[in-house]
């Protein structure tokens, strides 16, 4: 198996707070890995470290064996790392189709052109429309993003990432904020993504995690707690205690806190 993305001994501190501790993680070609862990475990921070939105305090990030720890976020994106955001980060004032065209234009370098009309590139428009069709967004192609219902905006979020033709795709809670009656639409899309792309997904819904992932990494307090197949994770008593039993654990913690303060 060839590793597309490797993270070695990654650390990130915010002042005295260690948000990421000695994290090792590998994504092979076509990987389907879920990243789970309680709130505040540092999952989104880890994604930001991989994409270059944050620089690590120490450790390395490798893409296809090349060290990209010092590479800018934009350059990493051009080399094939794409992400979606937990809270939509879209170009709200322009049409859905143009959102996708923009991602393609930045990927191909078309956006360096100051003179030729954007509308003259039929190839880009056709490609963009292709992504919209595959995500069942074709009917909304010409609507402004801000006019779409939230669930459909979540699909645009994914469509932009796909238009980057990524080799590594990081999905940060793709169905967050979508009513459960609609979330299956998004999860179907996630299920049917190109098997060649290495995917890391952050997700809280365990049903989704166990259905989608072939590998699971459990992150607790910034460090890798354990990793394994869905079966192993499901039957790991420590994971059950720390994570799956989070609510019980949380209540206990709250109760203790209350007695301390009282």
């Amino acid at each position: 198996m060839t590793a597309v993305l490797q993270i070695e001994k990654l650390n990130r501190n915010f002042g005295a707070l260690k948000v990421t501790r000695d994290v090792d993680l590998t994504l092979e070609r076509g990987a389907r890995r879920a990243l789970i862990g309680p709130n505040g475990a540092g999952k989104t921070t880890l994604i930001n470290l991989i994409t270059g939105g944050l620089t690590p305090t120490s450790g390395r990030v490798l893409l296809n064996g090349e060290d990209i720890t010092k590479t800018s976020q934009a350059e990493r994106a051009r080399r094939g790392i794409a992400r979606t955001f937990q809270i939509n980060q879209l170009f709200r004032g322009i049409s859905v189709l143009e959102n996708i065209c923009l991602a393609i234009g930045e990927r191909t370098g078309a956006c360096n052109n100051l003179w030729r009309p954007a509308g003259a590139s039929a190839g880009i428009i056709d490609e963009a429309f292709g992504y919209l069709e595959s995500l069942r967004l074709a009917d909304d192609a010409l609507r402004l993003v801000r006019e779409l219902p939230y669930g459909r905006q979540r699909l645009v979020e994914i469509a932009i990432a796909l238009a980057q033709q990524p080799r590594v795709l990081l999905l940060d809670e793709p169905a967050a904020g979508v009513p459960s009656s609609e979330s299956h639409l998004i999860l179907d899309v996630v299920d049917s993504l190109d098997p060649e792309i290495a995917i890391l997904i952050i997700e809280h819904d365990m049903d989704v995690v166990f259905r989608f992932a072939r590998q699971i990494t459990v992150l607790v307090a910034g460090a890798v707690f354990t990793e394994g197949t869905p079966d192993e994770i499901k039957h790991n008593p420590q994971v059950r205690a720390v994570y799956l039993g989070e609510e019980v654990h949380g209540e206990q913690a709250a109760g203790q806190g209350a007695t301390h303060h009282g």
Binding site: G53, Q73, A77, R83, Q89, G105, E106, A163, Q164
Partner: peptide, 17 residues
Amino acid sequence: QALVGIRENVRRMHAIG
């Protein structure tokens, strides 16, 4: 169009390279 993208959401522009 890229300028408009920067105006609309600079974070996403970084993320798409």
